[in-house]
Design a protein around this nucleic acid. Structure first.
Lengths: 216, 216
DNA sequence: TGAATAGTGTCTTTGAGACACTATAGG
DNA sequence: CCTATAGTGTCTCAAAGACACTATTCA
């Protein structure tokens, strides 16, 4: 057993429980930017999906495990937001929570889980336990910051899309309308034209673009 | 004892040790932007100051405790950077580390600790154990981001200062020269003039400013 | 007076915002 | 033709960068 400078082993120190909680964001066609909530296992109401960290498990793996268990979504790459450590934040004991954000395409949410999950517009937050309201707020800030830099860093759209689709996605993320012409001039240099155009819609067909390789 | 949804108590789950590690940055008159390193208690070499979280202790309090123990600095407000959770990152066992940044005025570093501490320019990083090199790099990115927004959010300077002093601080933080005139025009609206001027130096006396109340 | 530093005028460039125009489709 | 959407020209405005000028002090 390895020892620290004081000569005691790590086992001599009390250790906190560590949880992960995740704000999973997606774009709903009608609701706009939404956050996934799941039924709380104990008691009533809804909460962000979370779980306790298992032994030697990585935080990202714990997030993936909780999202798989509670909404059957997998293969994600959550990003850390911050650690919540307020004493008394969890009445079950000494629990730290590492908040995460994960953004997914709406198609990855399976319909058959709609009894135990729901999507709530970020503009109308409900009442959430623990620090979950703060986590959701932080996640919204985070995704807005990311989308002000790049066209579609979190793949809210498919592989190809028109500038109209991209702009509508940005408007949903940002929560406000964006100017059509300025948006195009900002984004077009960061996209790759496919040479294809849309057909069948109203009005002039639109060019179809892909994400630049750097964004992939 | 409270129980979770599975009916087991929290005590049934293994828990990780949680450490805090801190990149303490300051401005050295001759070295520029520097990070504080401390002698490692076990073995040789240097590391960022850190400690294990005590029972029911807040992360910020653990940071303050480690900085008081190792460099006799206190009363600080560290900010979280990120959690490091790679398996095997610490050969003493299952240890998560919550990295922090803290920026202080150089005058708060006590000279009598210079045997067990040293200040290393961020431009010439040494070899650091664990994830400490990454923490230091993240801290530099963090302070640069903060100082691109505001005059002196971390109080690297005293209560009052000239625009020259402020610019030299920014140049040290940013690691590059800044334009004198553009810098003034950017910063002056965010400062409060005291009406005083410097005396005794070479050249025309400079106006003395204070931080705006919002920054305080 | 000359060197050194403080502070400002102003020209250029750049990018966002705003408006209006042209282009191309369906009905 | 009309309507709807795509794409572009161009004017304005604000801010940063760059250069040069004036202002005030000490030696």
């Amino acid at each position: 057993m390895f020892r620290d400078g004081s000569g005691r082993t790590l086992a001599d120190y009390p250790r906190p429980s560590v949880a992960v909680d995740t704000a999973l964001l997606t774009l709903d066609r009608s609701l706009g930017l939404v956050v996934l909530e799941v039924r709380r296992p104990t008691g009533r109401g809804w909460a962000l999906p979370g779980t306790f960290l298992h032994e030697h498990e990585r935080l990202a793996d714990a997030v993936n495990r909780s999202l798989w268990d509670k909404a059957h979504i997998r293969g994600l790459r959550p990003r850390q937001l911050q650690v919540f450590d307020a004493p008394g934040r969890d009445d079950r004991g000494w629990v730290l929570s590492v908040a995460h954000i994960q953004v997914v395409h709406a198609s990855r949410l399976e319909d058959r889980f709609h009894d135990s999950t729901r999507l709530v517009p970020v503009t109308q937050p409900g009442r959430l336990p623990f620090d979950h309201a703060e986590i959701a707020k932080s996640a919204v800030h985070n995704i807005r910051s990311r989308y002000s830099d790049e066209p579609d860093p979190d793949h809210l759209l498919g592989d190809s899309f028109t500038l109209r689709e991209l702009r509508l996605a940005h408007e949903a993320v940002m929560g406000r309308e964006l100017q059509r012409d300025t948006f195009r001039r900002t984004m077009e240099p960061r996209l790759v034209a496919t040479g294809e155009t849309t057909a069948g819609g109203r009005g002039r067909p639109a060019e179809v673009f892909r994400r630049a390789a750097a964004e992939s």
